[in-house]
Amino acid sequence: MSDRALGRAGLTRRQILIGTAGIGLMAMPRWVQATPAEAAAAIAKITGGAKPAAGRITLRLPQIAENGNSVQFAVAVDSPMSEADHVKSIHVIAEENPFPQVATFYLSPANGKAEVTMRMRLAKTQTVRAIAVMSNGSAYEAQQEVKVTIGGCGG
């Protein structure tokens, strides 16, 4: 239930406060978590079964996320981004989220530089993986664990 929905319903502020208490208690999502095996299957699909190599791709993430609702990540791939040699796609996978795929970015020489920054939700402490698929079909991977904590008040 969003605040906006509450607002539209024209509730009084008293009801809003009562409702807010409810939201606080239900804020933690009842997520069914995916398994790293499912994430591996998703990655195999991306790379056509080939095992991605290490190197050329950098994944920047905080080691500890203050709140799993918003974890900033940046993925950069070392590539000339020329017609002959460029990054075709970047895939970000959160292994133990209920749905492991986070986002896919489709690139071309028009980008000039293969780097994207975004913010994602992480359901729990887990390993985040970034995979780059190059124009020649090869794939590279980087991964990092992010500790997701919920403070003493649970938000």
């Binding site: 071309s108 980008n111 780097e115 994207v116 975004m118």
Partner: peptide, 29 residues
């Protein structure tokens, strides 16, 4: 798109944070 031609695309799933922020690069052509 630039002048009607797509230059960048991204697919998003449920793990993208509320009020999505995205930065990327383009070569000025």
């Amino acid at each position: 798109s630039l002048n009607g031609k797509e230059v960048f695309r991204s697919d998003w799933y449920t793990a993208v944070s509320a009020n999505p922020y995205l930065s990327f690069f383009l070569r000025a052509s």
